[in-house]
């Protein structure tokens, strides 16, 4: 009995050795097969054959396809949209995986922060008037009543009504910054982030002119509207888009938030404004400790 068990053990040990160090089942199982973060869109699994081929393990080149250190963008000349050059950005800036949960928290955070919170009602102590007893306590045959500010009377107070308050909530700075870059990355991945040279401006201010530009570049209402983001004040552009709201919107960089980045069909942004966004929203990438001089 015991010898039989020993036999089977030695056989299995032999099999193990036969696999050898090159194909050690343990390391094969535990080795990280794909070096990509969890939430990226996967296109690799469909390409993988059902029987797992050891040779198709991602090498350095394949890994780069999933998370390259930098990504390329095309810089355009504004109204004509002629490509001028490629520009590279860090993939931690423009190639982050989509995190809907973080985007949702950021949008809610912004929405809370923009609430005015000025609704106000009067309590029974604030309503003007005498606090005289309306009628005698007994003998009238009617209900007992105190002052006319009572909440149960018409013209009386509101119980637990809205009072002015601050609705704003809190969100960790790093998470909000990550949401910014996630929103930009989502646009970039979809091809909806169009980066233009600095100084986006039109030759003339005219609604029809800007509409013809939008139509030519396929940015208008039929194509889901567009958000233009400028770093400076482009007078003609702002004036022209004033009455072309159905085709798009233009905003200065300091007016933009995460919700705006997610809203319209595409983002057309000045390079300076994009760089500013990325510089202002990278607290999770920067180390807090400053180097001693």
């Amino acid at each position: 009995m015991a010898s039989k068990g020993l036999q089977s053990f030695s056989r299995s040990a032999k099999t193990l050795r036969a696999f050898g160090s090159s194909k050690d089942p343990l390391t094969q199982c535990l080795a990280p097969r794909l070096s990509r973060s969890m939430a990226t869109e996967t296109s690799l699994l469909s390409r993988l054959s059902p029987e797992y081929d050891i040779t198709s393990l991602p090498d350095a080149a394949n890994t780069e396809a999933f998370s390259p250190p930098t990504v390329l963008t095309t810089i355009y000349k504004f109204p004509t949209m002629e490509p001028i050059r490629f520009e590279s950005y860090s993939s931690k800036h423009l190639y982050l995986p989509l995190r809907r949960d973080i985007l949702h928290r950021a949008v809610v955070f912004e929405g809370d922060g923009t609430r005015q919170g000025t609704a106000n009602t009067k309590t029974r102590w604030e309503i003007h008037g005498s606090h005289r007893k309306i009628r005698p306590q007994k003998g009238t045959g009617q209900a007992r009543l105190g002052t006319k500010q009572s909440p149960m009377l018409k013209g009386g107070a509101k119980v637990f009504g809205p009072r002015p308050r601050d609705f704003s909530t809190e969100l960790p700075r790093k998470m909000y910054d990550l949401a910014w870059r996630t929103a930009l990355s989502w646009r970039y991945r979809k091809g909806d982030l169009i980066i233009c040279e600095d100084g986006m401006e039109l030759e003339q201010a005219g609604t029809k002119y800007v509409k013809s530009i939008f139509k030519h570049n396929r940015w208008g209402k039929e194509d889901g509207r567009s958000l233009l983001i400028t770093a400076g004040e482009s007078e003609n552009l702002y004036k022209a888009l004033e009455n072309a709201g159905e085709d798009g919107r233009v905003k200065m960089e300091h007016e933009v938030d995460v919700k705006d980045l997610l809203e319209l069909g595409r983002i057309i942004i000045e390079k300076g404004a994009l760089d500013r966004f990325l510089k202002d929203h990278q607290s999770d990438l920067m180390s807090k400790v400053r180097a001693a001089v």
């Binding site: 396809a65 390259p68 990504v71 390329l72 963008t73 095309t74 002629e82 490509p83 050059r85 490629f86 190639y95 970039y188 991945r189 979809k190 091809g191 982030l193």
Partner: peptide, 27 residues
């Protein structure tokens, strides 16, 4: 070659009006 790639993509955009998304340029 990025120079050639850029020129080809630019000329193709001019001829067809179809924009290759930036995220696909590297691959």
């Amino acid at each position: 070659d990025p120079e050639i790639k850029f020129a080809i993509l630019k000329r193709t955009l001019q001829l067809t009006g179809v924009r290759v998304p930036d995220s696909a340029i590297r691959s």
